[in-house]
């Protein structure tokens, strides 16, 4: 809870926390707040622009943009949270094992992950989705796989540092077993660094999901996604630019939110900065 208080102390932290909370709220309760059925066309109200009936306007088929945005938040949140959580668990475990055992095991794990790291994330995601087929589950798998090497690198480096700390030796001197030391000393001490990586990866996940949606590779209709709304609006930039910039802005704000929270977490972990803000 110290972290929350710290985040709330700085302006950036407050904004970031607000954006992330707003996104989670919209994702959780959006479907109860939708004024219209997001899929229902209305030929009497095509591309209305912002009006009192349609706060964010309607698209070329007369579908309510606000309802579509509200609906698109949930699949995005699911994809972002699950893929980065799985990536952190798998990558973290591999990284800790590599960093703690060193030697041959370390070499094998890290070289295998370097192989994954050699492909741009977006390219690999496209390849995996292309191979297993489109859809939310496969996008989650693709992103999780893509995030594993990053988490593993961070966890490995942090484990190196922690394993050298005297308190690890101290745990050994009171007769603690190695696996117990990993669980009790290493994991809690690398957790803060992993959380920073997590927040950055989540921002990245939003971006990649949007890109995949834009390409039509992510969640399929009838469920909306922001990336597809952006793609739909692209053809009407001259006539009705808000069809493109509204979902674009939504994506931007969510990414900004995760990044600001990540920045705040990093400041929190740097004791010198922590004292300054206090």
């Amino acid at each position: 809870m110290d972290v929350l208080r710290f985040l709330l102390r700085s302006g950036r932290g407050r904004v970031g926390l607000f954006l992330v909370c707003a996104f989670v709220f919209v994702a959780a309760f959006g479907r109860f707040l939708m004024p219209y059925d997001p899929q229902a066309p209305d030929t009497n109200a095509l591309m209305t622009g912002f009006t009192w009936q349609h706060l964010l306007g309607t698209d070329t088929l007369g579908r309510d943009q606000l309802s579509r945005i509200l609906q698109g938040a949930l699949p995005l949140l699911e994809i972002v949270v699950i893929s980065s959580a799985v990536g952190m668990a798998v990558g973290g475990a591999l990284g800790v094992v590599a960093g703690y055992t060193k030697g041959v095991v370390d070499g094998l794990i890290m070289r295998a992950l370097d192989l994954l790291l050699a492909f741009p994330v977006i390219l690999m995601a496209i390849a995996i989705v292309g191979f297993f087929g489109v859809g939310e589950r496969n996008v989650i798998i693709a992103l999780a796989v893509a995030f594993v090497p990053g988490f593993a690198r961070v966890a490995r480096a942090a484990t190196f540092t922690v394993a050298k700390q005297p308190y690890v030796l101290a745990a050994r001197t009171i007769g603690d077993a190695e696996p117990a030391i990993v669980v009790k000393q290493v994991l809690p001490n690398i957790l803060p660094v992993m959380l920073v990586q997590l927040s950055l990866v989540m921002a990245y996940a939003v971006l990649i999901e949007a890109a995949l949606s834009f390409l039509g590779l992510s969640v399929q209709p009838p469920v909306e996604t922001w990336g597809r709304m952006l793609a739909d609006g692209r053809d009407f930039l001259n006539v009705q630019p808000d069809l493109a910039w509204v979902p674009g802005l939504a994506i931007t704000l969510v990414i900004l939110g995760f990044n600001l929270v990540g920045d705040g977490l990093r400041d929190y972990l740097d004791p010198t900065l922590r004292e300054q803000v206090r």
Binding site: Q165, A171, Q185
Partner: peptide, 9 residues
């Protein structure tokens, strides 16, 4: 070094 011999968490 007592400063680092205790686990901070």
């Amino acid at each position: 070094n007592p400063l680092t011999s205790l686990d901070p968490v």
